Simulated assay, not measured.
Amino acid sequence: MSYPHFSSISRSFAPGWFAAVMGTGVLSMSTLALSARWPLLAGPAEVLHWFNVLLFALLAVPWLTRWLRFPQAAMQTLQHPVQANFYPTFSIALLVLAAQWVQFGPYVGAALFFWWAGVILHFVFSFAVLFFMFRGEHVALDHVTPAKFIPAVGLVVMPLAGGPLLAHMDGALREWALTANIVGLGAGSMMYLGLLGLTLQRKYLHKPAQGILTPTVWIHLAPIGVIPVSFMNLAEHFPFPVVREIAAVLMALVWGFGVWWLVMASLLTWSAKAAGQLPFALSWWGFTFPLGAFAVESLRLYKIFGWNSMLVIGVLAWLMLCGFWSLTLWRTARGVLSGGIFQPHP
């Protein structure tokens, strides 16, 4: 089998590729957070940061080429009941990079550029993806997986960098940025609650999502990890001290659900692997960002409560993230070198 030409790669370029940027970004930031306790991790965290910037730049070329040269193929994916959910990974990647630029530096100019670009583009994608789903009749229960959370995840990710960046804005710009953060967090949180019920309905009453969709069970941890942290970031800018106390309690309760789901996702994944139902695919990157989001949430809670149990669970999640990320990167690199990963999946 000959290696595919760039035009073939860009024509069929999967929108889910940017989950790799999301996962690598959260690994770099969680590693940086742990470097406060173990300084030796500061170097690897910096390497991961710059590697992720390069990774985004490389993936952006075929992604943008597809929209420019093959808009019909891109639009067809945007209207697909499953694949469309992965398009917002591009805008989420921009928001994750903004958060990286805040933590590694900070490089405020770069962070503001990536954040505003990510916010605008993600609002566009969140409306476009859901518009086609709400307007059509092509979505069936078989298509309902936690991948449906991805547009909502991007909305709640906005305050991760948006909260700290408010300190670098003033006047009307700051007011609009704060409003964008509130709209994103509010809309994404309510969407997650509705979709949570829908996905649990499938798990109770319908056949499970298996095969290449098995890793999507981990996506639950993304909103669980991000929503409380984003709430804390915004609460610091509200003139009501009690809001910060409420945010800490909410954060702990949602984190508790995350601990439970971490075990459940592990059991379901192990069961799928034992049954031979876990083939490698790009969807494996779905393991990484949710685990990283939960690890970051755990470490943030440890700073607030000072409980060693939260630290231990956070470090455990980080170690699992390192394992999943390393394995997935290795398998992805092999697929890229062989060209097999660019072949359309049956």
Rank of each mutant, 00 (worst) to 15 (best):
I246C: 12
D170A: 13
G211P: 01
F123W: 13
F294N: 02
S338G: 12
S283D: 02
A265E: 02
L299H: 12
A36Y: 14
M190L: 13
H49C: 02
M251V: 02
F127V: 12
L282A: 07
G118A: 07
I9M: 00
F127T: 08
W270L: 04
K273P: 00
K148H: 12
F240R: 15
P279Y: 03
G225E: 09
M22V: 01
P208D: 05
A265K: 13
W255T: 10
F125N: 08
W38I: 14
L213C: 07
N85L: 03
K207M: 14
S2H: 15
A74S: 04
P215G: 04
T332C: 03
M29Y: 07
P15T: 03
M1E: 13
R244K: 14
M264F: 10
A74L: 11
A209D: 06
G154F: 06
Q343M: 11
G171Y: 01
V144G: 04
A317R: 08
K148E: 00
A36R: 14
L250E: 05
A110S: 13
G258K: 09
A74Q: 07
G154P: 05
A98L: 07
R300Q: 10
L200I: 09
R174I: 00
L337Q: 15
A99M: 08
A317S: 12
T214M: 12
G339P: 06
L193C: 10
W330Q: 12
R174T: 06
W116C: 04
F280S: 11
M310Q: 14
H168L: 07
L78Q: 09
Y204F: 11
H345S: 15
G211N: 01
W50Q: 09
M29L: 07
P215L: 06
L173N: 08
P39V: 06
V153E: 06
G163T: 05
G256M: 08
E175R: 14
N181Y: 15
F123R: 12
